[in-house]
Design a protein around this nucleic acid. Structure first.
Length: 465
RNA sequence: GGCCCCAUCGUCUAGCGGCCUAGGACGCCAGGUUCUCAUCCUGGAAAUCGCGGGUUCAAAUCCCGCUGGGGUCACCA
């Protein structure tokens, strides 16, 4: 049984787009193999915990359709799915590690710890814990019995090669001399990430640990823990980290990183996911546009490239435009109405305008820029009409005579007028366009006039005369 | 700085020893269609495959070194 997971920590206002990326890959990979994808909340850092974050992460995942088969909300037989609800478990396993000699108690003060690190740094050595407490466990035990605060540390072997296979990168080997005696259980009784992941991935029967590249260097610590317990290792796959244009790790300082931001900007979930699928991975047939179903069908972990891709919003915009154009009119109408629900747009106008605007929109947000003229009179004009009042009077007369009020008829009559007045079409229609919308760029004029209605068109033209 | 990962057009990428005088996509430029914009169509510029050594009849593709970029070194995940 293939089981994958993402383990977000509720320390931000939403799920990070990079996390959505790994989530999507985990989701697709699990479903491709008739497995399960689960979300486990890693809320072991009490100090960084953000109120509402957990709910937001889950709801955003939901909004993108990357639904977990098991989670805090969906339930499942391996719960609870929130680490703060599993505290006794970590304590138990930490104790087991101590019995096996793979971990030990430590009561060193933070002052001593930083002092030790400073000294090692000064000596150009790797800053890490000096195993002081390991050599005096009896004494430490007594102190603890007397109420001393303590942590449990992993007893890392001094010089041992840890070798593991990464599906995307091949063999990776790291010597334990580079590893610190990582804290496993904190003094507040919470586990650190390292204990938490290993214990939970084991208990939740995770078969494939697919996570971001930044975790490569701590994987050996995890492997040491697996080995200490005598547990079978999961398969590891470290996917690339999404980058800012300057190639650094995608961060909120340089880029919008919260996944729901993209939704708020009018990107479609399917388009964002499709774009994400192309990060570090390419369709075997070179296709660019494909849905989750097709992705599931052709996806393989092995095809993921180890190179860190730059997240390019421009290409995302293009892709989003492609999705918008491919949408059935009724769907797009619904999405626009919903996106602008605060404006309470006239349903009928939305419906009529959609065919005119769809190929001009990159995001749902673009709708208002393009279609505002259908809902409100011009506020300002990109041109003045002082020399054209006579011509505009004639336009009004022409419009008054038009029946039925159809785009084709309007266009025909207006062209006749322009010809009779010996005005170039371009000049003529541009004048009219600005008179009606205030802007030089609008949807096709005849169709737009049909939507506006005869009365409104005449009113607007008279307004500038 | 130590350790680890990585390296093909500006960006996303194809390529897995000969089919590559390196292909596609976004973006960009030019032209066409058109009453504006957009769509659409056509064409173009854009990577001496980071550099230097090997291996081989043959290397973008394999090996080594260098350089560059990134990640990581917490009682954060």
């Amino acid at each position: 049984m293939i089981r994958t997971r993402i383990a977000p920590s509720p320390t931000g206002e939403d799920i990070h787009i990079g996390n959505l990326y790994t989530a999507y890959i985990n989701y697709i990979f699990a479903h491709k193999n008739d497995g399960k994808f689960l979300v486990r909340i890693e809320d072991t850092d009490q100090t960084r915990k953000v109120e509402g974050s957990e709910e937001k992460i889950l709801s955003t995942l939901n909004a993108f359709g990357v639904n977990p088969d098991e989670s805090v909300e969906a339930g499942g037989e391996y719960g609870p799915y929130r680490q703060s609800d599993r505290l006794e478990l970590y304590k138990k396993y930490a104790d087991e590690l101590i019995e096996k000699g793979s971990a030990y108690y430590c009561i060193c003060s933070r002052e001593r710890l930083s002092k030790v690190r400073e000294e090692m740094k000064a000596k150009k050595q790797i800053p890490k814990y000096d195993k002081y407490c390991l050599s005096r466990q009896d004494e430490v035990q007594k102190e603890i019995n007397n109420g001393a605060e303590y942590v449990i540390r992993l007893n890392v072997p001094t010089d041992e090669e840890v070798i593991f296979q990464d599906v995307i990168r091949g063999e990776i080997r790291i010597n334990t001399s580079n590893l610190d005696d990582q804290v496993l259980l904190k003094s507040d009784g919470y586990p650190t990430y390292h204990l938490g992941v290993v214990v939970d991935d084991y208990l939740m029967k995770i078969s494939h640990v697919i996570r971001a590249e930044e975790w490569i260097s701590s994987t050996p610590k995890h492997i040491l823990i697996y080995k200490a317990f005598g547990w079978e290792l999961p398969i590891f796959a470290h996917v690339p980290i999404l980058r800012n244009p300057d190639k650094s790790k995608l961060s909120k300082r340089k880029n919008p990183v919260w996944a729901s931001w993209y939704l708020e900007q009018g990107f479609l979930p399917e388009a964002v996911l499709n774009y994400l699928a192309l990060m570090g991975w390419s369709h075997p047939e070179g296709k660019e546009i494909f849905d989750a179903e097709e992705f599931t069908r052709v996806f393989t972990l092995e095809r993921i490239q180890p190179v860190g891709p730059v997240f390019d919003v421009t290409k995302l915009e293009w892709m989003n435009g492609q999705y918008i154009m491919a949408l059935p009119i009724s769907n797009l109408k619904f999405l626009i109405s919903n996106f602008y629900k605060d404006r309470n747009l006239d349903e009928h106008i939305v419906e009529q305008s959609v065919p005119l605007v769809r190929e001009r929109m990159k995001t749902l947000k673009d709708y208002w820029d393009i279609a505002a003229m259908f809902y409100q009179s011009p506020i300002e004009y990109e041109k003045d009409f002082t020399n054209q009042k006579e011509l505009l009077e004639k336009v009004v007369h022409t419009l008054e005579s038009i029946s039925p009020w159809k785009a084709s008829v309007i266009g025909e009559k207006l062209q006749d007028l322009a010809t009779a007045e010996e005005v170039k079409f371009g000049t003529f229609f541009m004048m009219l366009r600005i008179a009606l919308s205030g802007k030089k760029v609008t949807p096709p004029l005849n169709e737009s006039m049909e939507i506006l209605g005869k009365e409104e068109c005449i009113t607007r033209i008279k307004h500038v005369i």
